[in-house]
Nucleic acid binder design. Sequence first.
DNA 1: CATTCTAGATCGAACGCTCATTCTATGTTA
DNA 2: TAACATAGAATGAGCGTTCGATCTAGAATG
Lengths: 202, 202
Amino acid sequence: MCPDSVEPSRAEARRAQILAAAGDCFRKHGFHGASIAQISKTAGMSPGHIYHYFENKEAIISAIVARDLERFLTLTAEIRSACNVREAMLARVAEGIDECLDQATAGLKLEIVAEASRNPHVAEIVHEADRLCRESFALTMRDMRRASGHQDDDQTIDAMVEVAIAMFEGLQIRTIRNPGLDRGLVSRLFQGALRDLFDQPA
Amino acid sequence: MCPDSVEPSRAEARRAQILAAAGDCFRKHGFHGASIAQISKTAGMSPGHIYHYFENKEAIISAIVARDLERFLTLTAEIRSACNVREAMLARVAEGIDECLDQATAGLKLEIVAEASRNPHVAEIVHEADRLCRESFALTMRDMRRASGHQDDDQTIDAMVEVAIAMFEGLQIRTIRNPGLDRGLVSRLFQGALRDLFDQPA
DNA sequence: CATTCTAGATCGAACGCTCATTCTATGTTA
DNA sequence: TAACATAGAATGAGCGTTCGATCTAGAATG
């Protein structure tokens, strides 16, 4: 009755349900450690039913990465369309730091990166997601730098983007390896380090 | 004939052999994806024989983490005993960046952190390893800062250590998510960012 | 020196279990 | 009724682990 484009169809809802359950299970047991039986129980359906919506286990992984990418692209688009890009960026930096310091979020992200380091299908989609992320980040960074009177070549901008993203992603590892870290202090110093990076002379 | 303390006994050699093979397999297939059969084939021995040296699969993981910790502690001890700590540190920073940018090394490290985010036994040994690492790093950092005329309280030093380590560990994720990055450029900007962090006013 | 002894090293088959996936049957809805 | 949603048992492969048998090299013995 309802075409898929109008509202989330039953199928869409079931897919989201499976993705949410799978995310939980992957977080808790890892990609290979989480079983279809576990995921299906968490999602409240039979194991066989999952195969009506996903070809196999790997397809679930890919769908999670794709969903996260979509969310990230929406977010970056919002930042870039703000009237004051710099302020929007700095505000988002604070939010991003908190997000990276959340153990559950960080755990799943690390699980995905680890899987990308060995699974070519996951690697492909992760690389593409990262490329889009860097692209958007670089555009924003270039605008900010120009407004501050700096003229950088593309290579330099790209390198700065790498350093900035590395800081965020590094926090994800820190929150796992040192769960007792002083989040307030780290967040403050971190924002300072990023601002220094943004404003450094060419 | 030879007591264990004199030279690596046959048993020690076998253990190292298994650890090396397991490292390869974990890198390629992940902790749960790598089977004892695979590891034993890589190590050139029978599956059953592995159980003469390790209680179970998890013990192999723990032993790898313990081995890496030992290596790291040796390294940091060397830095701290150098006559010019700052120079030793900066030299080590360059080496460390290259190491983090190596995909094989980074892949295994990420695998270990991901496992630590869900396996309490692995988490325990990783947290302890990280604590020792931070301790040594903080001492070195404090000496450096004092020589530059800065007086920082412990909290500030700890936070700076977190930021510095986060940068290194972030690079491990970058090299997986963006394998085509310009390593020379990133390395240069990265060393600059770390030097700025080291020298920033209190 | 030759032989026997023995304890550890090593093997590989076997076990019980769980996995991802498939398939058939049943329920539901328009 | 036709098409889809869902269930859950069945399957065959592969898993971690165990275990008894065999091999080997050095110590002990004569």
